[in-house]
Nucleic acid binder design. Structure first.
Lengths: 134, 134
DNA sequence: GCTCATCGCTTGGTAGACTTAGCACAGAGA
DNA sequence: TCTCTGTGCTAAGTCTACCAAGCGATGAGC
């Protein structure tokens, strides 16, 4: 596990330093989603039909996965391919114009498994993080 | 050498050189769009910042371009990246598919105004409400 | 103590995405 | 005629996305 070092090590040569903005967060995003789903690397790799060492490299930002691999990882994490592509910088933004932050609140409101109070609580926390007055 | 370079590929669906499912039409699509825009291979390759021989291979279905290249070609042809991804089989042509509860987490993750820690916090609360162990 | 299982990661290697150089053919002047 | 210039394609090479095998660390059970 180790700490949350931004720079792990591996200053070997150089290879691809920084290719695209927003793709450095892709590995972090995948790892976060994987841990939120309580999946080990091997489990996720098995479901996504990729090798676990490669998943390790991807999560640490050493390699840029192809769209096909991104699609499989997205499916294994129950995310849409669009979500993954946006994270990878392959798609710009989501089509819905009225989207923005409304999407978070709308998604919360639409979740049938939450009670109204729970929805209010989450949205209140969300707005407080954004600095929006309730 | 035998002059085998017939302009229009036999659109008769001849599957002799069928390589991957769903994307023997990608090269044909790109070539059609290029000729529709009155661009030569070198011109399009120049705009899309790829080499012209590679564009030739792509148009004839010999190689599968990466999503990054697809995005650049789409931009050079004044098409949306989604259109190209759909043609390449990387996306389904049904972008909006909301309604799943997991979209809450995706929406939170995609909000650019939240820090990673804030996203983790909200998602943990959300998941705790759903009765899912951290 | 000693296994055994599982975790993430490193190593070495292969295939294909992609490039730079060059070929063959066709049309437009001189 | 013979050069140009432009078209698309071939050949040979480089780079990297991706895989199989194996390593060190950690925790549970004997």
């Amino acid at each position: 596990m180790s700490d949350e070092s931004e720079r792990p090590k591996s200053e070997t040569g150089d290879t691809t330093n920084d290719q695209a903005p927003g793709w450095n967060g892709l590995g972090t995003f995948i790892r976060a989603q994987r841990e939120l789903a309580n999946l080990s690397m091997r489990q996720l790799a098995e479901i996504a039909k990729i090798s676990n060492p490669y998943l390790s490299q991807v999560e640490r930002g050493l390699y840029k996965p192809s769209a096909d691999v991104l699609k499989q990882i997205a499916g294994a994490l129950h995310l849409s391919a669009e979500t993954m592509y946006v994270q990878a910088g392959l798609l710009d933004d989501t089509p819905p114009a009225e989207g923005d932050a409304r999407d978070v609140e709308a998604a919360i409101r639409l979740d049938p498994r939450l009670t109204v109070d729970q929805k209010d609580t989450i949205i209140r926390i969300y707005r407080s993080f954004l600095g929006i007055a309730p």
